[in-house]
Amino acid sequence: MTTKRPLGLPSARLILIAAVAGVLAGAVAVYVRSMGSGNGEEVADIASVQTAGICEGAVARVKSVSEFAKGQVAAMVAAEPPRPLELSFKGPEGQDLKTADFAGKTVLLNLWATWCGPCREEMPALNALEKEMGGEDFEVVAVNIDTGSDEKPKAFLAETGVDALGYYRDSSMGVFNVMKKEGLAFGLPVTLILDKQGCLISAMNGPAAWDSEDAKALIAAAKGD
């Protein structure tokens, strides 16, 4: 006889994985910010270009969100500087979508697969977050990257009662490869927060209890509530 874990309370294993991910993410962030040619002016110029225009207003939002990256979502790393990020995948009807199609919404974009244990464990919490906070100004966009047919991911969602999330897919894994090249994805799951202009404001590698009070406070800060 097994005892089911109540929704919203991560297992000790999930907490450990998230904690390790937080340490690694912090180390990676320090490494990335330290990279360059050694020319301080060049790095400053790159940052200026990246924050110019559409993402200029996201700087304050990044600071606000970083203050809430603690507890269950401590592994969330601020984008310094925030920048436009365009990713492509399929929508619920198999239509081509881009992150730009979600303009006007704050988006929690999560990549998952049925063969990823931590991904499977956090999906009910993502579903609960969408039920509670999803709407015209916020959406959890969970993109499945299983190769092959829709059979396995759809069966998993049905079996686990995940009924609030839209069905987003990229069986080519192209979206993961783009994020990997951007230095954002080192494995699964990986989660990004994009603001209403499609600017990346923070990223996390590893799982989290997305239905926790820490996560809700983080999302509220991202939305500007």
Rank of each mutant, 00 (worst) to 15 (best):
M1N: 14
M1I: 13
M1R: 14
M1T: 13
T2R: 05
K4T: 15
R5I: 03
L7N: 00
A12D: 15
L14S: 13
L16Y: 12
A18G: 10
A19F: 05
V23S: 04
L24D: 04
L24M: 07
G26M: 02
Y31W: 06
V32A: 01
V32N: 06
R33N: 05
R33G: 09
R33H: 07
M35L: 12
G36E: 10
S37T: 05
G38E: 13
G38L: 15
G40L: 15
A44K: 07
A44N: 07
S48Q: 06
S48V: 03
V49T: 10
V59Q: 09
V62H: 10
F68A: 08
A69Q: 01
A75V: 07
V77S: 15
A78I: 08
P81S: 11
L87G: 05
F89P: 03
G91D: 13
P92V: 06
E93S: 14
Q95K: 02
L97E: 00
K98S: 15
T99Q: 12
T106S: 13
V107Q: 07
V107P: 09
N110G: 00
W112K: 12
G117P: 11
M123S: 02
K131E: 06
E132F: 04
M133L: 15
E136M: 13
F138P: 09
V141H: 11
V143T: 12
N144M: 08
I145V: 15
D146N: 08
T147S: 14
S149D: 12
E151Q: 13
K152M: 08
K154Q: 05
L157I: 08
E159K: 10
A164Y: 14
Y167M: 04
Y168D: 10
R169L: 09
R169F: 04
S171K: 02
S172Q: 03
S172E: 08
F176D: 02
F176K: 01
V178F: 09
K181L: 07
L188S: 02
V190E: 14
D195R: 06
D195K: 06
C199K: 01
L200N: 01
I201F: 09
A203V: 04
A203I: 07
A203F: 13
A203T: 07
A203G: 11
A209K: 09
S212K: 07
E213P: 02
D214P: 08
K216W: 00
L218K: 04
A221G: 00
A222H: 01
K223V: 05
